[in-house]
């Protein structure tokens, strides 16, 4: 493998890893703060992708569609938390798994009823259309660079909110001692609603950003969910920093594995996960 190709693949891996982080961050945030294992997280990714496809096909504007889809996802998050998730806080993880698996089926059926089973694609918005020369033979699409920058921006925003703002302080406090936060007069109920809705929106935004790069097909949520769990388990359940490092590792490793040993490439990230767990059973950045 030439040095040039190694560099190209590294860029590919980081770009993939950043997208993985965006998806996984919502999952780990909801688990870390609320202790809820949301298996329907992948469905929210799917919902984001389908929504943006649907709105682009009507309005023709990607920016408008992306904003509309993100807002709808936020609303959907609030609705799901208020109607369903709220009943599960005092139950065990198995009940949460049952409910959220059920939600996967509901969302898959809704997708099939509303939008059919044809595969769809979203065109890259015109302003981000071109590509920059990269190597002799290939060029790098501007949209992918843009997507990577958006992921970095959201990661930074997330870090800022969690560590520097009052909301973040409450989130961190709620994580370590729920009763105490409540006793201090904080409305933990609405705090949880906000956190869950943000988690849903992060998944949907990942779907929106991924839509022009990926194909929009039934079942796209489940495949991404499993990779997401690998990321979160490697990073440590509940840790945002862990999700970031885990996502980049998984992105880069799976990219190189795909080229160096294609037939085993799907296995490599699981083997890597096992190795990490052998050394650090709680993941890299567990609390």
């Amino acid at each position: 493998m030439s040095t040039e190709l190694i560099f190209v693949q590294l860029v590919n891996g980081i770009q993939y890893g950043l997208l993985l982080f965006l998806i996984a961050s919502g999952l780990t945030l909801v688990f870390g703060v609320m202790g809820i294992l949301n298996l329907a997280h992948g469905s929210m990714y799917m919902v984001g992708a389908y929504l943006v496809w649907y709105f682009v096909s009507i309005t023709g504007s990607f920016t408008l569609s992306a904003l509309l889809s993100a807002v709808i996802a936020l609303g959907l998050g609030i609705l799901i938390e208020r109607v369903l998730i709220q009943r599960l806080y005092n139950r065990n993880h198995l009940d949460q798994v049952l409910l959220t698996i059920g939600m996967i089926f509901v969302f898959n059926s809704l997708q099939s009823i509303l939008w059919g089973n044809d595969p769809y694609g979203v065109a890259v918005p015109d302003t981000l259309g071109g590509s920059v020369p990269f190597t002799d033979n290939s060029s790098y699409p501007i949209y992918r660079i843009f997507a990577a920058l958006i992921c970095i921006a959201i990661a930074a925003a997330l870090y800022f909110v969690v560590s520097k703002t009052r909301l973040g302080m409450l989130i961190r406090a709620g994580e370590s001692n729920r009763e105490m936060v409540e006793a201090l007069g904080v409305n933990i109920k609405s705090l949880y609603t906000i956190v869950f809705a943000i988690g849903v929106m992060l998944a949907a935004v990942s779907g929106i950003i991924a839509a022009p790069m990926r194909s929009i097909v039934p079942g796209m949520g489940e495949s991404v969910l499993i990779t997401c769990f690998v990321v979160v388990v490697i990073g440590g359940m509940g840790s945002i920093k862990g999700a970031f490092v885990g996502a980049l590792l998984v992105g880069v490793i799976s990219t190189f594995a795909a080229v160096l040993m294609p037939s085993m490439s799907n296995m490599i990230i699981y083997i890597f996960m096992i190795l990490v767990l052998l050394v650090k059973p709680q993941g890299l950045f567990a609390k």
Binding site: L5, V8, Y16, T135, S254, A258, V259, S263, S265
Partner: peptide
């Protein structure tokens, strides 16, 4: 030959360019 149904093609497309 990639594992079915993997769609992580970008690294292979880079490989083709190379």
């Amino acid at each position: 030959l990639l594992p079915f149904p993997s769609t992580n093609f970008q690294s292979h497309v880079s490989d083709i360019a190379d």
